[in-house]
Design a protein around this nucleic acid. Structure first.
Lengths: 156, 156
DNA sequence: CAAATATAATTGATATATCAATTAAAACAG
DNA sequence: CTGTTTTAATTGATATATCAATTATATTTG
């Protein structure tokens, strides 16, 4: 009886651990990936952060996106976007001027250097992803997606 | 022929999108979870950040862990740990004094208030996790774990 | 149209992440 | 035992996250 209680408590503990750890795993995987990706980029002598690249890339894909939409596309805060754009302009990758139709907004355009760095980054992005996803099947990725989507929708 | 080429290119594009997006999904899920969890904690009037709690919890579980090990357990930098501990001491949740055996290290002990807040947090942590993982089977969690572990080991 | 409201972006304050340099103490090697 | 190396933690600098308050402009409403 006491032994069964012990087993029961153990199994509760184990189950707790399992679900506890899942958010740690998610956190660890994304942190590791970011460090890994950033390291490879820096090693290649490319002077941009992953976050700056992400914002630049978003603007490249559609330069009419308002900053608040850049924020939601990149899962960032509008305040962060303001500051990242500032740095991108400082670094000469981006030009920014007020829009005449709506003077609260800005016309964001990649400079030649901005386009260059996007091109230079491309192979590294792909290599990084390929290495991180090595030996992982499409099926697994689909499942990963599906479970993560469930978590995301449970929360919202 | 041209139509088939089109389909082929589409499928490449779709596959690219899929694997591209996986890191976005991971990032989005963990960011959403953190926001969600932090909001619930704050709403409950508990004045601590998730990161501070995580560090406090790690010390509670084993108060002989050196700061550098706290860092690796929480996937943080030692510099961040130094600063988080500073805040925890300031807030009165933690006491810190030099160790006599090794004066580079510190004796970290939860104060009564520190223990209190850990207790107060407990139900919220569980509710948050339960809600985030609602309708997700153990099987799915196991798979999630397994795929994330693969990613993590591919990177290291 | 004028006043009220809503929206886009910025700014300030505080927390955290990351890297590099530094400090203090411990461990080691000759 | 002394000089060298290693280790634990801190500090400084810069980037990003988050929240709240603010500014400027646009939109809506009476």
């Amino acid at each position: 009886m006491i032994y069964q209680l012990y087993l029961y408590q153990q199994s509760i503990k184990i189950m707790e651990k399992l679900s506890d750890i899942i958010f740690y795993s998610i956190e660890k995987s994304i942190k590791s990936y970011r460090q890994f990706a950033q390291k490879n980029i820096s090693k290649a002598g490319i002077e941009i952060t992953i976050d700056q690249w992400l914002v630049l890339k978003t603007i490249e894909e559609d330069n009419s996106t308002p900053q608040k939409d850049i924020a939601s596309k990149t899962f960032k805060d509008v305040a962060s976007i303001t500051r990242i754009i500032e740095l991108l302009v400082q670094k000469g990758y981006l030009s920014r001027k007020s829009k005449s139709e709506d003077r609260r907004r800005f016309e964001l355009t990649l400079t030649d250097e901005g386009n260059d760095i996007i091109k230079k980054m491309q192979p590294y992005i792909q290599i990084n992803r390929a290495q991180a996803l090595k030996n992982i099947t499409d099926e697994e990725i689909k499942n990963l997606h599906s479970t993560l989507s469930k978590i995301i929708s449970n929360i919202n």
